[in-house]
Amino acid sequence: MIQSRSETIFQVAINICLSFMVLMVIIPIWLLIAGSFTDDSALISGGYGLFPKVFSLSAYEYLMFKSKDILNALGISFFITTTGTAASLIITPLLAYPLSRKDFTARNAVSFFVFFTMLFNGGIVPSYMMWTQFFKIKNTVWALMIPNLLMNGFSVIMMKNYFAQNIPAELIEAAKIDGGGEFYIFYKVVLPLSLPIMATIGLLTAIGFWNDWTNGLYYVNDSRFFSLQNLLNRILTNVQFLASSTEISQRAVNMKLPSVSIRMAIAVVGVTPIMALYPFFQKYFVKGITIGAVKG
């Protein structure tokens, strides 16, 4: 089929539009990366630029060899992301699977119990009081992992729908006739057929853990337990504090702020794991968005 002229113009127009948007997305991220590779004094005298005025790797050298805080924060981020995601991928399908079974007596009641958490919440103040006063998780690594992030009603319902639509009831019946117990069936029949949804939910959960800074903001002020995001957040807060205070107080001097390029380098380290893995998980990520949109 011959492309008509108007069709060609249309194609060119949408490609120009989309390329413009791609630039708008890339330039800000590139600015961050370029900053991290710029010599610090050049950055302070010449400001940020899209191309390093004086190329330098010293910020990364500093991160690799001289800074204990950053390696520690990186370790904590890895720990909460891996452990938290693993825990989440155990309790979420365990709750979702019985809800997908039509013969499960408590199905409707428990489904509502899960769904209601998506409609109403008590707000942050009661949660904060409970976690700090009753469970005393302030300044522990659990504070970064447990509140809010471990499981949510949304992913339970997504998983439940997947099980209901993709695991034939006959298959479960057949396994039962063969004498398999419920846990055995769940582990040997249901889970192997559910790898796509496990990958999707696991991915969204892992990104949630890696990117979270709010739990640290509320529950952690001891820098030994900072995740990378919390460390970045604390540095930015101090930068703002210095910018807003007119005289340089003793407190400001004590802060020992990392230089501008080192700050940018830490931020780059913060996004690198996600960016490096993104091409591989892109498929599941798009899938997650699409099935998430379908009603619960």
Partner: peptide, 17 residues
Amino acid sequence: TVLLLPYLLSWVIVAYI
């Protein structure tokens, strides 16, 4: 793929940018 990138960044990183 590119248009989804910003969605993956945490707000702290966005604040740095």
